[in-house]
Design a protein around this nucleic acid. Structure first.
Lengths: 354, 354
DNA sequence: GCGGATAGTCGAAGCGCTTCGACAATTTCA
DNA sequence: TGAAATTGTCGAAGCGCTTCGACTATCCGC
């Protein structure tokens, strides 16, 4: 840097000012400086910069443990976060699951390596959040805790997602709809998506004026199979099922197939908080409500950076609804229509009084 | 740090020595120093350390673009890499796809932020590798380029993976086996897995003494469907198919189902370089040869760190075979056995001469 | 009992930047 | 027309560590 300064006939500090726009530099001088940098192949040293300015321009992503995790499993999420960070001149480091122990987290936060952290898979009462608040360390959340007062977060709009899905099915003529959530234990642990979808499902069926039944289910094909069978037995009028449990889907499909029902003519299935990747794995391709992974990760990063750069920050939050993509696993239930004494089918799936 | 030194009645430098074990410190003094650190809640500052020591203890993962990517799509890979890095006292930063442009890469490498980089999705002739070699920047690879001389890498053992799979199918009695690879363009671009599996398939069928046919296929259900139909038409004796193309699988299954064939009794399918997650999405659960994601990422990180820490490094490399997990999509082909005039089935699937 | 290792410690000089206060030169406004 | 504000630049003081050379005290072998 000194070499650059000499070559451009300016002081060391002027080079710094030109580089960071932190004090006015005449256009002429600036040109000379950049020319010198170019010629010398000069690259500012990130660590030195960080040490002097007390801002590393590194942010951390506090990562869910994929075994324990229930939510976003898409690699895309991480890639996108890194991209967004870079667009804003930041680097993204990954803080793995072991660091979710509050003491470890405190240790790393106080090392001064990162300017802020993005917390994923936030629970309603999350000790990591409590800690970060306590030591006043900048952070944003993907998901959100119960008390979001003064906090920045990006989360899925579960209300809208659920309403759209239930309304869509009701519009096809389904009168009884089941919701197959994730596990009971996730609910008990206050895992946001599980708690919120459970509530929003109940709300949505009320709004849509249909019957609804919901059930928890551990994330595995065989539990999906069992729970679906249980629901189908308990609730013979069931013609459509919504699930947020991707791993249970093969079991759900199997339970339906074993009744010699055909999807979508005899039974409709929609997977919410899912992805196109998942949808295309099944035949027929599933109607899904896709999590907007790119949007969420982008927002999570931007919210944090906003906080870091603004003086007085009004911490923002954003809700992003999943996007319903209709594919081959949903439609009017022909089976019920047939069973109810071959009355002609009318648009919208409504059956005229006999 | 000065406070710590004062409180422990030693010089600043002694604290540093105690902290890094870089010069001998008497046990007694060490105790005093650590006690003082504890009491003052002292945390060494990562940036200052990095600046002074010229080692940031940060490594970068040069990330594939998930849209363009053909290989590892598991989030687990990244998590594991971050875990391994942390276990060795390193932080892992993500360098997104935009940085794969060699000029960008050079820029970032020379910023001094990271000590080394792990390159994923390496092509046989990869300009990123060429650049890193040229500027003599430490790196390791997941996958490998053509000329691996003096380079550290961790890659899938395609030879073993393919041999094991083909032998397994041959052992079940299959006489004609198809291999459905990824796309032709990936092959033309010199993407390692595609090139290597193509060669190893040919080698493996020769070793196993069976007939083999292979075909490229773009990664989508409908192309899987088309290519499978083509193979089935061209090659009527086909009873088993190996694929490395996960996204084509639903199409493959559909083509089989449309012939009223049942998996595995009429046709066997195995997906190589895949995962349990994928396998469980289908009914029946697929026999897969699972990519050892955790192992690969661990090795990639360790290989790099070894290079960074050792003086004279004999760059190591490791090949990790995929692990064959037999599930419900493979078995002896009963259809062929029946068709060839009800001769009794003998163990191993061999049909005695009539 | 003496030369030479070795253990244990100290002070000071950086690492490559940012930033503060100062100052000259120029512009602005009453 | 002069005081005040603004623009553009400089020198120097750190940021919080590591590391080098030097120094003292102890220990070994012969």
């Amino acid at each position: 840097m000194l070499d650059v300064a000499k070559r451009a006939n300016v002081a060391l500090s002027t080079v710094s000012y030109a580089l960071n726009n932190t004090r006015p530099v005449s256009e002429e001088t600036r040109q000379r400086i950049f020319k010198a940098m170019e010629e010398l192949g000069y690259r500012p040293h990130a660590m030195a910069r960080g040490l002097a300015s007390k801002r590393s321009r590194i942010i951390a992503l506090l990562f869910p443990n994929p075994e324990r995790g229930l939510g976003i499993t898409e690699l895309e999420f991480v890639t996108n976060a890194a991209d967004t960070a870079r667009e804003n001149g930041y680097n993204l480091v990954l803080w793995p699951s072991e660091m979710h122990d509050p003491e470890e987290l405190r240790l790393f936060a106080q090392q001064g390596l990162v300017d802020g952290v993005i917390v994923m898979e936030v629970r309603l009462n999350d000790e990591r959040i409590n800690l970060l608040r306590e030591i006043d360390f900048p952070f944003s959340m993907i998901g959100r805790c119960a008390d979001t007062d003064g906090l920045g977060y990006a989360d899925i709009d579960f209300k809208h997602t659920m309403l759209e899905t239930v309304n869509y099915l009701a519009g096809l003529g389904h009168k009884t709809i089941a919701f197959l959530n994730q596990s009971q234990s996730a609910f008990d642990n206050g895992y946001g998506p599980v708690v919120r979808t459970e509530a929003e499902f109940k709300h949505a069926i009320r709004v849509a004026g249909v019957e609804g039944i919901s059930s928890f289910c551990r994330p595995a094909p065989h539990t999906g199979y069992e729970v679906t069978n249980k629901l189908l037995t308990e609730c013979p009028g069931l013609t459509a099922l919504i699930t947020m449990n991707e791993r249970a889907v093969p079991g759900i499909m199997q339970a339906i197939a074993e009744r010699d029902w055909h999807v979508p003519d005899d039974f409709s299935l929609v997977v919410i908080v899912s992805s196109a990747r998942m949808a295309e794995m099944m035949t027929p391709a599933l109607t899904t409500s896709d999590i907007q992974v790119a949007e969420l990760s982008r927002l999570g990063v931007e919210l944090l950076i906003q906080q870091l750069e603004a003086e007085e920050h009004e911490p923002l939050h954003e809700l992003v609804a999943c996007k319903l993509v209709v594919r081959g696993s949903t439609g009017p239930c022909l089976r019920v229509l047939k069973e109810s004494s071959s009355t002609p089918v009318v648009a919208g799936g409504k059956i005229p009084e006999a």
